[in-house]
Simulated assay, not measured.
Amino acid sequence: MSLPTLRGYLKLLRPTQWLKNLMIFFPPFLGGTFFLAVIRPTALIPFVSFCLASSATYILNDLLDMEHDRNHPEKRLRPLPSGRISPLSARALALILAGAAIALAWKVSLSFLSFLLLYGAVSSAYSIRLKEYALVDIFCISAGFLLRLEAGGAAFGVTISEWLFLSVFLLAVFLSTGKRLSEKNRLGVSAANHRKVLATYPEGFLDGTMFMTGGAVLVTYTLYVISRHSSLLLYTVPLCCFGLLRYILRVQSGKGGDPTESLLRDMPLFIVGLVWAVMVGWGIYVP
Rank of each mutant, 00 (worst) to 15 (best):
F26K: 00
L93D: 05
L77M: 00
F29G: 10
F139E: 08
G214V: 02
F50M: 04
E162N: 13
D266L: 09
R195L: 07
G256C: 14
L130S: 13
S123I: 00
L110T: 09
S182L: 03
T159D: 05
S176D: 13
F145M: 06
V197W: 02
V219P: 08
G153L: 05
Y201Q: 02
V217M: 02
Y119C: 08
V251Q: 12
F25L: 14
I128Q: 13
L147E: 11
A277C: 10
V275D: 02
L118V: 14
L269P: 05
G120C: 08
G208V: 07
L181N: 07
S176H: 10
Y58I: 04
N193K: 06
L22G: 06
L12G: 09
D266E: 15
I128Y: 14
L118T: 15
S231V: 11
L110M: 10
T33Y: 04
D137W: 08
L88D: 05
L147H: 13
H194D: 08
G178M: 01
T236E: 01
R186S: 09
T57R: 10
P268V: 07
L206A: 04
R7A: 00
V136C: 07
A53N: 05
S176V: 08
A43T: 11
Y9T: 11
A105S: 08
K179C: 13
W18N: 02
L198M: 05
L233R: 11
F156D: 06
L147C: 11
E183W: 00
V173G: 03
I226A: 05
M1C: 04
L6C: 12
T213Q: 00
L77E: 00
R148I: 01
L239I: 03
R76E: 01
S124K: 08
G283W: 07
Y9L: 15
T177C: 02
E162T: 14
A143M: 14
V108S: 02
R40I: 14
E203K: 15
C51P: 05
R195D: 07
F169G: 09
P41R: 03
L264M: 07
Y119S: 08
A143G: 12
L30P: 07
A134S: 14
V168R: 07
D266C: 13
V189R: 13
L63E: 07
A155I: 04
T213Y: 00
S55A: 03
N193H: 05
V251D: 11
C240R: 01
S123W: 02
T42L: 11
I160D: 02
L146R: 03
S123H: 00
L171H: 12
V189D: 15
C240P: 00
S49D: 06
L244M: 01
R76H: 01
W276L: 00
A92K: 15
T260M: 07
T236M: 00
I226T: 05
P259S: 02
F169V: 12
S227G: 06
N61Q: 09
L149K: 01
G32W: 00
A98Q: 03
S231L: 13
G208R: 14
K131Y: 09
L30E: 04
K107W: 14
L118S: 14
A105V: 06
